[in-house]
Amino acid sequence: MNIKNKKAFKCKECGRLTYPRRVRCLQCKSTEFEEVPFTDEGEILTFSQLLQLPWGIDDRFLTFGIIRFDNGIKAMGRITTPDVSVGDRVKASWENFRVMAGEDIFGWVFSPVK
């Protein structure tokens, strides 16, 4: 699960970034992509603190948001604190943040840049 999720791509034809992977480019329909590395940091586009959690998570709350990495890739991930604002700079790390049905789940965890 985590391997598919770790890579972002750029369309070889038109340069549109896509994450996660898709079969055809949304813009030009090309099927040729190249992998693009994520940058270390990005900014928060939007976020929410969730206080009524779905089944499987027994925390009191969690915070997640959509981040635009500095090279333009956009991705959702957990944010380490609810005390953030839209536009804040965050550092991105790929972490094992959850266990689902006994399986370690990896994904993006963002923390504010001091």
């Binding site: 598919k4 999720n5 959690l53 779905p54 089944w55 499987g56 991930g77 959850r98 689902m100």
Partner: peptide
């Protein structure tokens, strides 16, 4: 919370769902 999880299965399985996002969470953002 099971019902919330069920509806959340319509989100992207590994770019959204795994993070614990629910439909209220999407609507919150």
């Amino acid at each position: 919370w099971r019902a919330t999880d069920f509806v959340a299965t319509l989100t992207h399985p590994y770019a959204e769902y795994i993070y614990g996002v629910s439909l209220p969470g999407m609507a919150g953002m």
